[in-house]
Amino acid sequence: DKATNPLNKDLDWDGINAFCEQLNKELEGPPLATRLLAHKIQSPQEWEAIQALTVLESCMKSCGKRFHDEVGKFRFLNELIKVVSPKYLGSRTPEKVKSKILELMYSWTLGLPHEVKISEAYQMLKKQGIVKC
């Protein structure tokens, strides 16, 4: 709640770090975290989406393979794709949110090249013209 409550208008780094630690500890941590974050990233409220993307970014840096593998599934990547695609939520999503998603995906293609589904999803977005630069 501390990390992802949109009523918190400032980033709570202690809360975010605690979220990342907790998801590492729990057996079901990675799937639970990705489901929660996907839902919030799809929020029409820009701050809620940006906040959740910041938590996702931070956890990808500090968590290990279990979380990387869960984020690297199409089950989660599809939810990010929906946000940037005009066929789904893209038309009503702020540019800032869409840009951050594409930046994160690009960074993971470089930093986690073994997560091949991330690269595949990113290449698909490039091919469809969603990635403009």
Binding site: F74, N78, K82, S85, I130
Partner: peptide, 15 residues
């Protein structure tokens, strides 16, 4: 509930 050893996944969404 999702199994700890769940390796299942969906197909890539085509847009």
């Amino acid at each position: 509930t999702v199994s700890f050893h769940d390796d299942s996944d969906e197909d890539l969404l085509n847009i």
